[in-house]
Structure formats: structure tokens, C-alpha cells
Design a binder for these strands. Sequence first.
DNA 1: CCGGCGCGGTTTTTT
DNA 2: ACCGCGCCGG
Length: 787
Amino acid sequence: MEAITNNLTAAQAEAVTHIDGPLLIIAGPGSGKTRVVTHRIAHMLHRGVRPFQIAALTFTNKAADEMRMRVNLLAPGQPVWMGTFHRFCAQQLRRYASMVGLQENYSIYDTSDSKSAMKRAIAAAGVSTTHSTPEQIASAISRAKNRLITPEIMQQQSGRASDSVAARVYPVYQQQLLLANAVDFDDLLYHFARLLRENPEVRGELDAKLKYIMVDEYQDTNLAQYAIVRAMSVDHPNLAVTGDPDQSIYGWRGADLNNILDFEKDYPNVKTVRLEQNYRSTPNILAVADQLIRHNRRRKPKELFTENPDGENVILRQYEDGYQEADEIADEIATQMMAGNAEPRDFAIFCRMNALTRSLEHALRNRGLPYQIVNGVEFYQRKEVKDLLAYLHLINNPSHDVAFQRVVNTPTRGIGATTIGRLQRFADSQRIPMLEAARRANEIDALSKRAVTMVSKFVTIYDRLRKKATASLEDLLRYLVEETHYIDFLEKSAMEKEDANPAANVDELISAAVEFDRMHPDDGSLDAFLEQVALVADTDAFEDSNNRVTLMTLHAAKGLEFPRVFVIAVEDGLLPHARSKENDQQLEEERRLLFVGITRAKQWCQLSYAKRRSVRGDVRPVIPSMFLSELPRADMTVIESQRDYDFFDSVDEEYPDSWDIVQEPATTIQSVAIESNDAPSTVDRLPNASVIPDLYMDEPSAVTKKPKSSKPSIQTGLKTASELLDSDRVPLNLYREGSTVRHPEYGEGKITSLVGRGPKRTAKILFDNATGEQTFRLAFANLELVQ
DNA sequence: CCGGCGCGGTTTTTT
DNA sequence: ACCGCGCCGG
């Protein structure tokens, strides 16, 4: 047990060993926060705290998975609850559903579901949308929920004009959600917060049960989250929060910086620990970040320092335009790789908006550089996946009107907009779900005979599917695809599009279902699966140290680290974003965003802007971001653009287009491994190359240990896409059922099963030690084939 | 009722 | 440049 505090600094140990009473950990970037949190949990367990008394709340699944993995290393197999706020609330609401007007099989609407629900509510409320868009109304309502404002209160307040429109829609929207036995994302927090507020006995019960609550990224909590945490920490105020005010970047979604700034006031006997030493970045990088963030007024001053050795200067670079920026960054990556001291996974490119990744994507693809876009087009957003999920939703919750509308004519069965509109009107007038209206189609005078027949047919199909509701997910899905002739429908409708292969996505969904069936042999209810899907934005939360350049937004970058970082388009209007310049608070948040970006870098960092950039078609001159003038230029390498650059003279001809060569298109990967945030530890110090099989090697020996310097394809330089991507696939074929593999964390194990193809190929591995069985995507896991 | 075409608005960030 | 929406011919 002493071992737990062994490799910690004094400050870290102080935080780790504080168990009872409120604790505030102010943790600068790269200060070993995750290490502290995980060690603290392990320490509490050793001290006799029961695992089910602890709940650790995070904002993202990535963070929760990382935490779970690392706690499991320190204290294997302990059922400590770790997960996102939203998941926590979702699970609690299952138990207390009836107390907020829901049934326990309630559905969670995703953003697009709530959008269509919102449109319907707007129509039903009879407000005109000439002065405010559905999005504006939705966001006003969202803001209200985040601040625990009820429809009634909002109507009384009705300050801004746009708010008064929203105030009229809000009760209607809310009523329709309840009728559909559904909640949106905000409701998960809102309902649960109000439940705690209005039911002292429930509050007391949970407070007593969860004696030790931990909140990660506390600077990003909104009022609802604040209220939830607070309510559960009254009788047992052992609340431990970690955060960094300088990394608060979610103000736009209701996060209130005061929650962390005032924590010491809220909890008078708080113990505060500051982790200021940085173990991640070079002093060069840290100095630039520090200089930048000093320009913020609303913060707690912090001394960031590091004992890491000096590195290269941070580069501030100007390009002619966005295309040159993309091309030259791709070249730079290729150059650094050829120099032999970097591989694709070392690089990350951050931008303010998703749209900016497009030109980078193009440039990387032209050079055959493997890349991944984090949070690009998500699997569960694909049309065919959403269609099938909508069926599942409707089977699980017959009141799910959004799902009904999606599914009733998919595949097309002659039920058009007119019919759906009439069903909707009938449903509204009777205050019944649309499926119920469909059952009573013959009572609806407005419907034609033909429509009644079609609708009845659908209901028949539905009832047949519903009988399978309790079967395994796999069976249910296969049956569903069969009964609806869904594949035929896909083939008929998606004939021309070459890139997509929707049928593969259907397969992939089925594999996900199979996976879920296996992981939840007993409780594998439809309910749980759908909840999982709704709350896990990106599916593969497993190990995926896939060797690719990472493209993502600055928001998505929080909590991650990379050896080499590019931040692109640091330009006025983009960063700070045009819509964030109205007030100082927003401006400061933009500054923090850049701060987060810079502090992700371990060794090398470049900020860039262009002289002109094309937005929405036409080129516009660029004003460099004001933030750039706040940096210590004397200590940086400033490179201005000189030569004329003709973007028509692009590299397309020199490099083959990888998409033509690869039969199985590289899929977009939606998640990225969180690398260690930690102070140096034994594991952290191991050079990556010695434990991670290199997917770029052409020979099967790729999967054996080799020093970095002997990577053939990197040494000889980057070649064509086919070579890179071909070699990417080769090792996968070597894995067989029964193969013995080694994982850097879990040690040796045997492959017990293999499913899926290509990048989706997934293995279940039974480990020799206490870890038990784990599931990995072969293409991304750090597996080493032993025989 | 279906699917194709053209128009206009539109984009910040995410559970 | 892209997507969703509305109009129109089958």
C-alpha cells in the first residue's frame, strides 16, 4: 500500500492521500492529474473504502475509459463507478423514471432526434420561425435546461425576444418528449438534478450510498451538474474535484467557470492542492503557452514550470493560403518521418472548426500519409445505421415518435409525407404516440383507403418485430434486416455512390450487437444497448494506438498529448471565432482554447496562419489572430511566407491517390487513445517503438520487437500509398484463434475469437493474469504476436 | 407517392 | 463547397 504513493511528488501524494472532506485539485496541463486521480481511488480502496461508495464522473467516454483502465492496473477488478455525467444520470433515471414522468424504458434522443422533435414542437406551438431559427430556439431551451430553468419560470422571465419564442416552445417540446417517453441530452442532467432537488429522500439515499464522489474537469461543469454533485455531497461532503480554470472551453454549453473559482467558498473546509509542475512539454512550449494565458483576466494565476530539458523553439509560421498550409504541413510531416525520428502517430493537427480539416485531409491523402479524423462523420450517424437503430428504438419504446417517423416508410412502403402528417395530427389531437395512431388508422377520416392499408401493413410488420424484442440483439437485428428487406432497399437506393458501402455498415452494426450480446450475457437488454449507443459518441473506446496522423478540433484535443502538434488557421474570425468576440468572457475562452492546443505538445509545436483563406467558395484576406501578437516572439522561430505559391500546381500527379489503390477504403476512426498525462513512470518512459508493433513494416517480423531505427519503410522514406496501406493490412492476417499475443498493459493472452474484417477486425483475448477477457480492434491495439 | 433537381442558407466548439 | 428543403415530372 505504500507503493501507491511511492512514485509521486509531494503535491501529488498530498492529493492522493486526502480521503475525507472536500478536495480541490488545481491541475495544470501535463501535471499528472489522471495519475493522481487514479492513485487516489486505489489508495481509498486500500484504506477500506468500499468500491461501490465511489463514483468518478467525467465529461467524455475517452476520459472515463482511460481512468478505468488505469485504476484497473492499480486495483484490478474493483467495481468503482466511472463514467460520464450523462451516463450516470441516465442510469439513475432508469431507477427513478416514474418520479419525473418517464417510464424506465425511456429513450435518449440524440441531437438530430431532438432537432426533429423540436421542429414538430415549434409547429405545434404555432410560433413563427421568421425571426428565430429552430437551432436558436433549441439552444435557448438547452441553455435554460442547463440552468435548471423550468418551462414555467422561463415563461415568466422571457427577457430577450428570441427567448420569448423559445419560452413558448419549451413547454410544448417538453410535453412531447414526455409523451414519447424520451429525453434529450440536457434532460438527463435536468431531470436528475430536479429529482434530487424535489425528493429529499432520494437525495439522502444517494448521498449516503455514494460517499466519495470525484469530478474530473470540474471547470467544465454547468449549473445542472453543479447541483447534482452538490446535492449528493451534503451529508458526506467528500467531494474531490479536479480541474484547471485555464482549460475551461465549454462555456458555450453552459459551463460556469465560477463553479471551480468558487469551490473554496462552497466547501469551506476544502483542501486545495495545486499541481503546477509539467511533465509533458519542453520549457520552450510551456513558455509560449504560459505567456499567452497570462493575458486572461478571469483566472487564478498559476506558475507553470517544468524540469524537462530544452527543446526546439515553437514555430510561428505564415503561409500564402490554406492550401499551401495543408500541403506544406503534410510535407513537413513526411520530412520529419523520413528523418527517422517520428512516425504518423506522433503528429496531431488541431483546428478551430471541423470544416478546416478538409484541405489537410486531401494533402495527407495525396502523400499516402495515414490519418484519422476524430469526431468526423460518426458511425452511428450514418443513414443506414440510424435507420436500423430507429427500428430498435421503436421496438424498445413504442412511443418513440421520432423513430416512428423515420422508420414507417423505410424501406419505402408507400407512406408519404401527407400520410405521416395526418397521423401526426391525429396523434397530437388524441395525445397519443404516433404508433398508436397508426394502429387506429381506420379511425382517421383524413386518410385514404390506400394509406390505411399501407399503415396497417407497417403495424403488422412492427408487431412481428416486436415479438423478437427479447431475443439476442444479434438475432433481433438479423431478423429485422430480413423482414424489412433492408439490404435490398439499400442496394436499390444507394446504387451510384461509389465510396459508401452501406451494407458493410449494417454488418458493422450487427457485429457491435454481437459484441454487446457477449459482453452482457445476462442483462443484454435492448435498453442498455440503445443507451450505450446514445451516450458513446465514438464506439471504439478500446486501445487504439493506431499509427496515424490525428486531425481534430481543439475541443476534442483536451486531455490528450502528442509529441508534435500543429495548430492551423490561428486567424482572426476563426480563433478567436467571429461569434466569440462579443464579450471578454468569450474571448478569454478562445484564448484558453489555443492554450489547450499548445499545451498538448510534448516536443514540437507549430502555430500557423495564412495570408488568405477561402471560406465558402471565395478567397478572403486574413488578419492574423490577435493571440499571435501576445506570444513571446523573441523566443520563437518566426517564418514568413516568401515564395509565390500556385495552388493549381498541386501534388496530385506526383502521388497516387490512395483511394484508388486500396480495395477496402480506410475507415474514419472516431476515437484516439489518450496517452499518458502523467509524471514519468516506468511504463511511461519506455520508448514506444519497443512495445508497439509497427503497422508500417512490410515483413511479418513487423510484430516483433525492434528498435525504432530499423523500420525499413520509414528509413527508406515514405513511398506510395499502396505500400503504406498494404503493409497496414498485412499483420492482421497473422492473427488466428488460439494465437498467443502480448499486450503492453495486460501481458500475454490467447485469442479466443475473431470477428469482422479489415480495420474492423476484432479479437477477444483471454489474458493469463487477473485481467480476464478483453476485446480489441486488431488494427489499433498494441498487440504483439508471440507465436 | 417517389425520386430528381435546383435553390438558399449556412457552420463553432459536444454529451 | 455542402446540405437540407421544396418543387415538379413520372
